[in-house]
Design a protein around this nucleic acid. Sequence first.
DNA 1: CGTCGTATTGAGGAGGCTCAACTAAGGTGG
DNA 2: CCACCTTAGTTGAGCCTCCTCAATACGACG
Lengths: 244, 244
Amino acid sequence: MADYARTRQKQHDSPRLQAVPFLPAAGAPLVELLSDAHRRQLTRLATVRIVPARTVIYRADCPAVSVFIIGEGTVKSIRDLPSGRRRIVAFLFAHDLFGLAKAGRYVNTVQTITAARIYALDLHMLTKLFKRDGELQFQFLCKAVHALREAQHHNIIVGRRDAIGRVAMLLHLLLKQDGATGRGYTELQIPMTRSDIANYLGLSLEAVVRACRRLELQGIVAFPDRHRATIIDRRRFEALASNV
Amino acid sequence: MADYARTRQKQHDSPRLQAVPFLPAAGAPLVELLSDAHRRQLTRLATVRIVPARTVIYRADCPAVSVFIIGEGTVKSIRDLPSGRRRIVAFLFAHDLFGLAKAGRYVNTVQTITAARIYALDLHMLTKLFKRDGELQFQFLCKAVHALREAQHHNIIVGRRDAIGRVAMLLHLLLKQDGATGRGYTELQIPMTRSDIANYLGLSLEAVVRACRRLELQGIVAFPDRHRATIIDRRRFEALASNV
DNA sequence: CGTCGTATTGAGGAGGCTCAACTAAGGTGG
DNA sequence: CCACCTTAGTTGAGCCTCCTCAATACGACG
């Protein structure tokens, strides 16, 4: 019992990376990529930042000095467009990786949605470590490929024409993130605003609101407040979220 | 001169990987990631496949045994949806990488658009090599991250509401791939069908056709035949393709 | 208790999708 | 070499959904 608690504590205090790896893992689809030794190693070269909601971690086009791993919290990766509009390229959660630069500069702007604990890893030290430790680098490669698959899935979502289906798919995403099932119903947190959701799904704010409304009227999902949802009819919800 | 020809020949016969790396490279944004030594090494464990157009390289959910690098040609990565529709997740060109598996299985179906020369790298041998050669693995990490950025850019494209802008962005993509400028006009090849373009852009086939028509009527782009385009008014074209 | 950012609801209009008919091109067999 | 067939592309008409604009409600915070 004491051992268990200590392990939890350790995990809490050092970076983790989760992904579905290349090769099949026994049972669980999503696994922890980093070994205890790797976590200790990364902890040594990491700076921990505890930041409130709405904090900008970095801006697009700024010189990249660190790569980041989320310990806790939700952040958004934003691309500002020449027209003044902005698109949310990805929502990122605990054990996700971000800050992978292009030609020495960040490509997106990243901002926290909730309060967050973020590990900043010095880019130069990390790449040096990669050259020495192929095993560690391989885990980052797995995570990058995982992120690529997520981006492709995002493409599928945005490719849908119906607003209600897109919103359902976003809720499905959040469900995978933290789904708490109790008494047959499944409850989930919606950390981001409706406006964020619209920017992520390629919809207008109003379209998102109306889609939520319809989900509620049809008895599929309930929204007790703006940042929570309850899946009422799981079967119809899955049908909406998976059938494209 | 002879030396130059020999180098060309060697490059022609061994796999290459192109991307914008993390760190800034002098001048060129897109660089060759693999050294001569790495190319020789990969050639040793590669099987070269010369395949005609419309060849399926692998199907989704099949056990993954190889990772692939395109030597020459264009291929498409397809996701089949439960509804029977299909979305093209990515177009891939020479020096691109594909076949990165998820839990031991391929996630998309990949099919050639043109005749192609493809290098198949045994997955197990490659991962073993990665553990030994951190430098080589780092180049694959760069390429994976590059692919992630491309996928995010695809998201931006699909997020646009107007058909004409989306088509312009696709042409811009093809332009980067092989743009031949002569006499002020820029000509480019369109290897894929209109239907492929529609599936990639999240439009209907008809919408793509009409967008091409309007580009032509407005004097921005000419389509001498279905697989070629000429940029007539570069300024307005860029405005369409970049301004979202 | 006012104020600002976020959310909600309504009315009107534009753009893309669907359906349908038709044309063009490429490939095959006689 | 040509007729035929199949696939890809083109064009038109009508419907449907989502976007835009505008007005209002909510909720957190000072």
